[in-house]
Amino acid sequence: MTQTEKQKMLAGALYLAGDPEIQADQLAAKQWMTRYNAALALPAGERRALLAERLGSVGVDAVIRPPFHCDYGYNIHLGDGVFLNFNCVILDVVEVRIGAGTQIGPAVQLYTADHPRDAATRRTGLEFGRPIVIGEHVWIGGGAIILPGVTIGDNAVIGAGAVVTRDVPAGATALGNPARVR
């Protein structure tokens, strides 16, 4: 059976991002972000209801401070008490899971989107994604970037401005560019 481009995307396989179904999902996410990002002055409960409209799952007392940007939204899963500060970006072509009690600073970027290393394949417009998993009670400092396929263990700390290219074990502190466990 032939998979649609969206099915390929969700499976982490090579897919064409210009596919009409995928473009329609991105447009729906843009329309939702316009509403969500205009909701900064609304009570937290109303913003949480907006999050529940678009995200894959939203735990109790999860907060994302607008502005917030994502590709689709439905691949993002927030545990209880998750907090994302202003101006976070999540490129969620595949799943992003953020565990309970995790705190994410302003301007943090989570990238599941990836591209083929071979230039000829890139020219075809094909891309793919690798999931990001962030454990419970993780603290990610402002401006950090988490690259595709990274897992961060429970209770880890990611320093401000770090570029996380590899998995970070539970309880570890990772700093720098590229981030190194200290």
Rank of each mutant, 00 (worst) to 15 (best):
Ile140Glu: 05
His77Ile: 03
Ala120Phe: 00
Arg180His: 09
His77Ala: 10
Asn155Glu: 14
Leu50Thr: 06
Leu42Trp: 15
Ile145His: 00
Val157Leu: 14
Val93His: 12
Gly79Leu: 06
Pro66Val: 05
Leu51Gln: 02
Glu95Trp: 08
Gly18Cys: 01
Asp61Phe: 09
Arg48Phe: 09
Leu40Thr: 15
Trp139Asp: 14
Gly143Val: 05
Asn37His: 02
Gly73Pro: 07
Gly56Ser: 08
Ala172Glu: 10
Arg47Glu: 08
Arg35Leu: 12
Lys30Gly: 07
Leu175Gly: 11
Ala156Leu: 05
Arg166Glu: 13
Gly79Lys: 08
Arg123Trp: 02
Ile98Ser: 02
Val163Pro: 08
Glu136Val: 09
Ala107Thr: 14
Leu10Trp: 03
Met9Ala: 12
Val150Gln: 05
Val133Ala: 15
Pro66Gln: 04
Arg54Phe: 03
Arg65Ala: 15
Ile158Asn: 05
Asp25Thr: 07
Ile134Phe: 04
Leu91Cys: 02
Gly56Gln: 06
Glu5Ala: 11
Gly99Pro: 11
Gly56Lys: 00
Gly79Tyr: 03
Gly159Val: 04
Gly79Cys: 08
Ala144Val: 08
Thr165Ser: 13
Leu84Ile: 06
Gly79Ser: 03
Val164Ile: 01
Met1Thr: 14
Gly161Cys: 02
Gln26Leu: 13
Ala29Gln: 06
Gly159Glu: 09
Cys70Ser: 02
Val138Gln: 05
Asp61Thr: 11
Gly159Asn: 06
Tyr72Pro: 07
Gly149His: 10
Glu5Asp: 03
Met33Ile: 02
Ala172Met: 08
Ala113His: 07
Asp25Arg: 14
Gly129Met: 07
Gly18Arg: 08
Tyr36Thr: 12
Asp92Val: 01
Gln23Asp: 12
Gly59Glu: 09
Val93Thr: 13
Gln103Tyr: 12
Leu40Asp: 14
Tyr74Thr: 00
Thr124His: 06
Thr121Gln: 13
Asn85Trp: 09
Val96Gly: 11
Trp139Val: 13
Glu95Asp: 15
Val93Cys: 15
Val82Asp: 09
Arg180Leu: 11
Ile134Tyr: 02
Pro43Asp: 12
Thr34Pro: 01
Asp167His: 11
Pro169Leu: 04
Asn75Cys: 12
His137Asp: 15
Cys88Thr: 09
Ala24Pro: 04
Arg47Trp: 09
Gly149Thr: 06
Lys8Pro: 00
Asp154Val: 04
Asn177Pro: 07
Gln23Glu: 13
Thr2His: 11
Ala179Gly: 08
Gln103Asp: 14
Asp25Gly: 08
Ala170Arg: 14
Gln109His: 11
Arg130Cys: 10
Tyr36Trp: 05
Asn37Ala: 10
Ala162Tyr: 00
Cys88Met: 12
Met9Asp: 04
Ala13Cys: 10
Ala107Met: 15
Leu27Ile: 13
Asp92His: 08
Asn87Ala: 15
Asp118Gly: 02
Tyr15Pro: 00
Gly101Asn: 08
Glu95Tyr: 05
Asn155Phe: 12
Asp61Trp: 03
Ala144Met: 08
